[in-house]
């Protein structure tokens, strides 16, 4: 179990230079997520128009894994429709499952082909206590979409 599997350069880059890190004044779907055990906090704000996420803001504070995961998530869902995002979320969480039973079929010969930058987070699976960190932004995203669907 190498630390290099966990702290890939692309993860550290997203941690140091997080993308989509701004509040959205015009958001119509918002959710807050936290992991009370370690204090990680994430806020996801979405602008959903015609079933599509046209803008996303991911803010908060916490460890490199939770913050990098949120940064990559923003890039991955922007411009996608809600149904595609649901499938993507399922794949990401599958990649994070400990036993790999729900592995979304990543191709080791073509890194990034299935989930893009997000595949860099697959090393987290080998550090079970950190899986929650990687999943936190995604669980918060699901919550935001659920809130939107319930009110529209």
């Amino acid at each position: 179990m190498a630390l290099e599997d966990l702290y890939r350069e692309v993860i550290l880059d997203h941690y140091r230079n997080p993308r989509n890190r701004q509040g959205l004044g015009q958001a119509n779907a918002v959710a807050d997520g936290s992991n009370p055990l370690c204090g990680d906090e994430v806020r996801v704000e979405l602008l959903i128009e015609g079933g599509e996420v046209t803008a996303i803001g991911v803010t908060g504070h916490g460890c490199s894994i939770s913050q990098a995961s949120g940064s990559m998530m923003g890039d991955a869902v922007k411009g996608r429709n809600i149904e595609t995002i649901r499938i993507l979320t399922g794949r990401f969480k599958g990649m994070m499952s400990i036993d790999g039973a729900d592995d979304p079929g990543l191709d080791p010969n073509r890194p990034g082909a299935v989930l893009g930058d997000l595949e860099a987070l697959q090393g987290v699976r080998k550090f079970p206590v950190r899986i929650k960190c990687a999943n936190l932004p995604w669980t918060t995203l699901e919550e935001a979409i659920k809130n939107f669907v319930a009110s529209h």
Binding site: M1, L37, C38, D40, G62, S64, I65
Partner: peptide, 29 residues
Amino acid sequence: GIHAHDVATILDQEGVAVRAGHHCAKPLL
């Protein structure tokens, strides 16, 4: 530059067990 949670994970790989988090003292932190 390194979150406490990341510090604890790396230390654990080196065999060093420490606590990371708010230590059940959120008002203090």
